[in-house]
């Protein structure tokens, strides 16, 4: 509930002022991650509320194949560097 209020408030600022911060908006693709990832999920790691830079570099490493994975290598290739940056930043704001 608190999260929603905060999101709405931030969203409202974005909507009414210049679209500088879109921290609370799930960028394209980010809503699909929760099909597999949850704060409480068992085998698949939690990705929410973590350092944005760390998530970004992990996703980029999945994308260029330097970090081996079962499925993330295939998923990360669907996103540009910019999109990955936005997703990582957004995930960091989520709990």
């Amino acid at each position: 509930m608190k999260t929603l209020r905060t999101s709405l408030a931030i969203g409202l600022i974005v909507a009414s002022a210049a679209p500088v911060r879109a921290a609370s908006a799930p960028p394209p693709g980010a809503a699909s991650c929760s099909g597999c990832h949850a704060a409480t999920s068992q085998a698949i790691p939690n990705i929410y509320g973590r350092d944005a830079d760390a998530t970004r570099s992990t996703l980029l490493a999945f994308r260029n194949g330097s970090m081996p994975a079962t499925v993330m290598t295939r998923i990360a290739k669907g996103f540009s560097e910019d999109e990955i940056g936005s997703i990582a930043a957004w995930l960091a704001t989520q709990k």
Partner: peptide, 19 residues
């Protein structure tokens, strides 16, 4: 929880509804 689910939804558009 409700909070967890929230992040999955397109919160950006929520601002529009509020407006």
């Amino acid at each position: 929880s409700r909070r967890e689910f929230l992040r999955t939804a397109a919160a950006a558009t929520a601002s529009l509804a509020l407006a």
